[in-house]
């Protein structure tokens, strides 16, 4: 019979456990690196496939508005214009509304329970699939807008409106976080100096939270620029450059969504070039937004 001291003697760890520990650690490191790897792979893969079109069309691709698969002439001026304009209109609508929502949900207007429910409902807007927004837009929003505007069918206006609904939760959620994080002392100081609630909000709280709010707006912009399904279903997909918001237009993502499945040869490469342009724009906007938001967390 072995003694108790022998049973519980502390020896060296069995090799199996050591190996498991090392393997597990490396698995974790490799998985983490895989995320960065995916990001690089995505950009590289699209770039390589776009290379034939890039060498053939050069930067002129960005400034021409012809898209002619028969004669193999491609340019994405119209989609670029549509992408930027639809996103800007969406931001013009959803920034004030999103800020209003963020203020209501961060001040003490409402009992906490109702506030929680409202936060949940706004978050739900972000969870509804894009294609469902598109479906609703086709059958409800466009017929409604045709009754009250010169709109005749799909066009820039319904697409931008739906976009504004879709990006609203991004703006309001991040702005709300930023507002809540503002030091209570600052608020009290404002009130102590005799400022009203809104004087405090406008001159103290909002400026203090501004970097978080700007970060949120940029994330929303990134989402609006790349949003595909709802826009494709509502914008009309016309490659003619129209300045009116009641006319059909096009965005880079809807160009991709419409043409990719049937494209071949150089057209695929031209579409890859368009995708590369979109990827670079959204990546840049997103990275900038991340930096702004991270700076905020350090303060």
């Amino acid at each position: 019979m072995t003694s108790i001291s022998e049973q519980t003697r502390i020896g060296s760890r069995p090799p199996v456990e050591k190996t498991a520990d090392t393997v597990f650690r490396w698995a974790a490191i490799i998985s983490a690196l895989a995320i960065a790897g995916f990001l690089i792979w995505i950009v590289l893969q699209i770039f390589i496939q776009a290379l034939p079109a890039i060498t053939q069309f050069g930067l002129g691709f960005l400034f021409k508005s012809t898209w002619n698969p028969v004669r193999n002439e491609y340019g994405i001026l119209t989609p670029i214009y549509g992408t930027i304009v639809s996103s800007i209109i969406a931001l013009l609508i959803s920034v004030p509304i999103g800020l209003g929502v963020a203020i209501v949900l961060s001040e003490d207007y409402l009992p906490t329970k109702i506030q929680t429910i409202l936060v949940f409902l706004v978050e739900l807007l972000a969870a509804i699939p894009s294609v469902v927004y598109g479906l609703w837009g086709i059958f409800v929003l466009i017929p409604f807008l045709r009754g009250i505007t010169p709109l005749r069918g799909p066009g820039m206006l319904p697409a931008a409106l739906i976009l504004s609904v879709m990006i609203l939760p991004t703006i309001s959620a991040i702005a709300r976080d930023a507002l809540i994080n503002v030091d209570v002392g600052l608020r009290q100081a404002g009130v102590g100096l005799g400022a009203t609630r809104w004087e405090t909000i406008l001159w103290i709280v909002l400026p203090t939270a501004s970097s978080g709010i700007i970060g949120g707006i940029m994330l929303a912009l990134g989402r609006a620029l790349g949003e595909t399904m709802a826009v494709t279903m509502l914008i009309g997909n016309s490659n003619q450059l129209n300045l009116s918001i009641f006319q059909p237009s096009n965005t880079i993502s809807s160009l991709l969504a419409n043409q990719f499945a049937e494209a071949s040869g150089l057209q695929v490469s031209a579409l890859m070039y368009a995708a590369f342009v979109l990827a670079v724009i959204t990546l840049a906007v997103n990275m900038l937004a991340q930096v702004v938001v991270t700076q905020l967390q350090k303060i």
Binding site: A32, L33, I35, A36, F38, L39, W41, I42, Q45, I46, I48, Q49, L219, G222, R223, L225, G226, E227, T228, S253, L256, A257, F260, L271, M272, A275, L278, A279, T282, L283, V285, N286, M287, A289, Q290, T294
Partner: peptide, 24 residues
């Protein structure tokens, strides 16, 4: 850096992911 990459990846439009997987 990995956190940064994760956040950026979550901002990549799904159509870009579709195009990427089509190519890859």
């Amino acid at each position: 850096w990995i956190r940064f990459a994760t956040n950026v990846l979550s901002g990549v439009p799904s159509i870009i992911i579709g195009v990427f997987v089509y190519g890859a």
